[in-house]
Design a protein around this nucleic acid. Structure first.
Lengths: 148, 148
DNA sequence: TAAGATTGAAATGTCAATCTTA
DNA sequence: TAAGATTGACATTTCAATCTTA
């Protein structure tokens, strides 16, 4: 049988190393943090993106997402606008400079992912890993400790 | 070909959800944070454990590990003692209450791992996941962005 | 000089309380 | 009442500077 503690350990430690290395490289090459890039990718991919959508996309709390938007907005990479049908919400959009930054940083991001995630595994093994992680994520989303 | 951004996303988000759910359950059931439990497991498993060993085991910086030991020591779960051959170092050991806490919290930890990691996957799939993560972790350790 | 460790400041997340609008 | 969002207090990590000993 598989040692679940070992799997947990390898998962958490690899995620930490992966995040830190990509983040370091990204800041040196493009001046963006990985957290910012991640958020910009979500904003870019979500039509009429709300703060709540960012929170769910990043798997962080709404409060944390609101503060993250503050920082990205202060940096000039995104802006809040009025929501057309719900005045409790704002629409978060990338600014011109934000879009530029995203265009510049994305290739660096992809290079690092290839180096740390793609290169060490064969195509078939990587495909199995992708399937397992997608399954685990969906399963965890469906079975929260705090229901509702 | 596999979408590496999607793999990265699923990996990071699942890790976040897994960590937060296990942490919440652990605090309610045993009054320990997952960060503390993780550190106590390393201290328990490492003979003559130094702060540096904890940093490497958790994949965090030495500064962060030093502060983490401060907190665990303040909580009464571990203690620094003199290193027998190197006076720059300390030896970190679990106290009696720390060992008790570890004994009480470990089963809760294992239950949560089974629920969120073991149950959603078949035995064979889980075994492949374990192999891939071990490989990726070793690979990332061997190819740091900052050499040495 | 280098290695192990500590410290303070800055960044980023959680949580709980609160505000506004559905 | 509930949902979306904001805010302030707190926790934990990184980074850089510093201290002590090899």
């Amino acid at each position: 049988v598989t040692d679940l503690r070992q799997v947990f350990d390898d998962l958490v430690r690899f995620e930490t190393m992966l995040w830190n290395e990509v983040d370091t490289r990204l800041q040196k090459a493009s001046g963006v943090t990985l957290a910012s890039l991640n958020m910009m990718l979500i904003i870019d991919a979500t039509p009429a993106c709300r703060v709540l959508d960012i929170a769910q996309g990043l798997a962080i709390t709404v409060g944390g997402a609101s503060q993250a938007v503050d920082r990205l907005e202060k940096a000039g990479s995104c802006a809040r606008g009025p929501h057309p049908t719900d005045r409790r919400s704002s629409i978060v959009e990338l600014t011109g400079p934000g879009r530029e930054l995203l265009t510049r940083a994305a290739p660096v991001f992809d290079e690092e992912l290839e180096r740390l995630l793609g290169a060490p595994l064969t195509g078939a093994t990587l495909g199995q890993l992708a399937d397992s992680l997608r399954m685990l994520r969906r399963s965890a989303s469906a079975t929260p400790a705090k229901p509702q």
